[in-house]
Amino acid sequence: MSAEKLVEIRWHGRGGQGAVTASEILAEAAWEEGRYFQAFPDYGGERMGAPIRAYTRISDSYILQHSQIVNPDAVAVLDTTLFSLMDVTEGLKDDGALVVNTSESPADIRKALKLDKARVYTVDASRIAVDTLGRDIPNTPMIGAIVKATGVVSREGVLRTIRERLGTRLGKTMAEANAKAVERAFDETQQG
């Protein structure tokens, strides 16, 4: 997918899980690789627990359009309780990637969503977050899973961005823990 000119990703999460931050970190990782980006949330009124959608648009050339993303190349779902509220695969390209934070297998997810298109990836991002960060904030491991599923940026690139961006904001220890979470997600993501 990295050879494509424009890559569009939709993030589904709940307020507090870090979907908006994830959309921005991925964008910055692409920027570090000399590409253009936009990252934007669907709604500004973010409340703890409320369903959130965020988007990342990455391109080799300057991005002119500011319209919404309706046919994403990849969808990241940070919380499977959203399945009953909305169709998280809406508009997902037939050859797109669905990446889900769950302890279940890709086959289980495919069955639960009655999905016969797209590639399905699963990773227990919440487990990884608890192990590495001490809290269930699944956004950074989900970045790792999205990178694994799409190849939209390099593994090294995203790790560097995590260390730099989170290092400034959260300090070196937390940045390293987040980098570790990304690495684990990258290794543990399953495809089916």
Partner: peptide, 12 residues
């Protein structure tokens, strides 16, 4: 400037 479309979008 356009709210959200420019105001909330993260861009270089």
């Amino acid at each position: 400037m356009d709210g959200f479309i420019l105001g909330h979008t993260f861009e270089p």
